[in-house]
Lab assay of single mutants.
Amino acid sequence: KLATQLLVDLAEGCHTHHFNSLLDIIEKVMARSLSPPPELEERDVAAYSASLEDVKTAVLGLLVILQTKLYTLPASHATRVYEMLVSHIQLHYKHSYTLPIASSIRLQAFDFLLLLRADSLHRLGLPNKDGVVRFSPYCVCDYMEPERGSEKKTSGPLSPPTGPPGPAPAGPAVRLGSVPYSLLFRVLLQCLKQESDWKVLKLVLGRLPESLRYKVLIFTSPCSVDQLCSALCSMLSGPKTLERLRGAPEGFSRTDLHLAVVPVLTALISYHNYLDKTKQREMVYCLEQGLIHRCASQCVVALSICSVEMPDIIIKALPVLVVKLTHISATASMAVPLLEFLSTLARLPHLYRNFAAEQYASVFAISLPYTNPSKFNQYIVCLAHHVIAMWFIRCRLPFRKDFVPFITKGLRSNVLLSFDDTPEKDSFRARSTSLNERPKSLRIARPPKQGLNNSPPVKEFKESSAAEAFRCRSISVSEHVVRSRIQTSLTSASLGSADENSVAQADDSLKN
């Protein structure tokens, strides 16, 4: 292990032709098999893994070397290190390495390699500790012929580059190093199909959405987006994914797998022009299946994007999809995704031109529960009313008269009656009930004795009459309010007539 670390330190600071010789020695160290011998017992696995620490030291050392060589000349050094790393990870899946030390190597290698970024000039870069990406002036992410390196360097940008540029090249004859992302992409596909350690798979799935944002990485080298989509959909639809995973937390289920895969599918929607129609349908189907899991909100957001990006695919699945959405409970976490999906859909009339009455009724059935102001915040309630109004205007004229009683009944049950079921009123009724029952229970537990009763009969009569009056008032709060309003209006009217009579009498006395 110490000798391997010494080789790594020497290679990191070497800029001459001896660098390749040092890498040859490190490569021989990495070539050791990580498969346990067949006769190895389970209690000896930890000791055997400790004997392979030099392999881990070599791989982690290459990660440090690549981070240094990416910004220094010659660029061919970075290319050689990158290829060695990718080849080593491929061996893991070729020979099915399952030892804990092998999983640790893959975890740290993917953690580093999935941080690679590219700008519009195809320059590769890595983020620093502050998250700012520094791009290399010597390494690009696409394949290029050595003699055409300078031509590639002087080509115009596709868009303004992001991030601070690296140091300027030493001279005009500098050759750019090619670090094609397709090599890593193929290893990522192998990981999605064969990885057995949940920690490694979770890391890859968590980092892929951010990497897919940099389309330069994908399009400048032959990366098959179709295969990526197929691998992701197979993970969700195939039963073998959960069987092969180990190291998963207790209670791990298909729902947890959906939570990890759906963000990658959402990021892949922007590549729909490069996906086969069959793959697009598979993607939409997987998102529909996710509606029954805890990732339902993410799936609804993804389907909203699909309705804009892939209208030809979503239009066929939309009638059944809208009916499925009615089975989702009206909760605060689902309110905004569902209502925004319906609001977006209302502005795309070509998608729902074939809707029948059942689909329009489903839209109103989804939106009406969110009009309850005692359960949802003001934004959700306003958005629900907006969706109902928009869809009522957009639905066909023959359907409107049939939906009017349905909508008014839903609004009455969710908006008007919600004020009668407020917690304050319920607590008031509970308190009044307890007050009504309390005197009775006290009389049963403690019967009054005439000799020891010091309270006069008049006081008892007053208290009983007050309790009886309170019971009468607490029967119905709404009736009490109505009666008080009527009494107030009658009182004001009587006072007004009394004032008029007094004024008339005063005038008569003055005349006399």
Rank of each mutant, 00 (worst) to 15 (best):
C191M: 03
Y71H: 05
S237C: 10
R246N: 08
Y181S: 03
R244Q: 06
V132W: 08
L91Y: 07
P180F: 02
S150F: 10
L63W: 03
P239A: 09
L158A: 14
V81N: 00
V140T: 12
T241P: 09
W198P: 03
L203Q: 12
Y181N: 02
E145T: 14
T220I: 01
D226G: 09
L116Q: 04
S120E: 13
L217K: 03
K199F: 07
S196N: 07
L126H: 05
E83S: 12
R80W: 01
R246C: 09
V140N: 05
K193V: 09
G163P: 11
S230N: 08
I89A: 01
S178W: 04
Y97D: 01
D142P: 02
P127A: 08
S104D: 13
A173D: 12
F185N: 02
I105P: 00
V55Y: 01
Y71L: 04
G251L: 04
E243D: 13
E250D: 10
Y143F: 11
D130F: 08
W198Y: 05
C139D: 02
Q227N: 10
F219I: 10
E210R: 05
H88S: 01
S178N: 14
K94D: 11
G156Q: 12
C223Y: 02
K129V: 14
H92C: 00
A58T: 01
R186I: 04
R80P: 00
V204W: 00
A75Q: 06
S104F: 12
V55P: 00
S96T: 09
L66Q: 01
G238K: 08
K56Q: 08
I65W: 01
E195V: 00
Y138A: 04
F185V: 03
R186T: 09
K152S: 08
S51L: 06
G156W: 11
T154P: 13
V55W: 01
S234Q: 13
L115Y: 12
E210H: 10
Y181M: 04
D119Y: 00
L60S: 15
P209T: 13
W198K: 00
R213T: 07
S234H: 09
Y143S: 09
P249H: 07
P157H: 11
V132R: 11
G125H: 02
S96A: 11
S230R: 06
S76A: 10
V55C: 04
R186K: 11
V59T: 07
L99M: 08
G166D: 14
R175D: 09
H88N: 03
T72H: 14
N128H: 08
C223G: 06
P180R: 06
C139M: 10
D226I: 03
F219S: 10
S224Q: 04
L245E: 02
C191G: 02
Q90P: 02
E145A: 07
K153H: 13
L52E: 02
Y93K: 01
D197S: 06
K199Y: 08
V204A: 02
Y181D: 02
P249I: 04
F219C: 13
L183C: 08
L73W: 13
C139T: 05
R117T: 05
E145Q: 10
T57N: 05
P222S: 07
K152C: 10
V200Q: 00
L203T: 12
S224I: 04
K94T: 12
H95M: 12
C141K: 02
P180S: 05
E145W: 07
L85Q: 00
I101T: 04
Y82R: 01
K240Y: 11
L73P: 14
L184W: 05
R117M: 01
Y138E: 02
L66R: 00
S136V: 01
P74Q: 03
E53W: 03
R117Q: 07
P164L: 12
L212A: 01
Y214Q: 09
L99D: 06
L115T: 09
L99S: 07
G149A: 13
L121T: 11
S237T: 13
T72V: 13
K129A: 13
S234C: 07
Y138Q: 03
S51T: 12
K215T: 04
S211H: 06
R123I: 01
S150H: 11
L52K: 04
E250R: 07
G61Y: 00
L115D: 10
V187M: 06
S182L: 03
Y181W: 07
R246T: 10
I65R: 01
S104Y: 09
K202C: 04
P137G: 04
A102P: 00
H88F: 00
K199T: 15
S230G: 12
V133Y: 15
C233W: 03
L52R: 06
A78N: 01
R117D: 01
P100A: 09
G156L: 14
S178M: 07
P239S: 11
S224C: 05
V86E: 01
G125A: 06
V216D: 06
G149Y: 13
A102R: 00
K215N: 04
V55R: 01
S150V: 11
K69A: 03
I101V: 10
R186C: 08
G206I: 05
L176W: 11
L203K: 08
T79G: 08
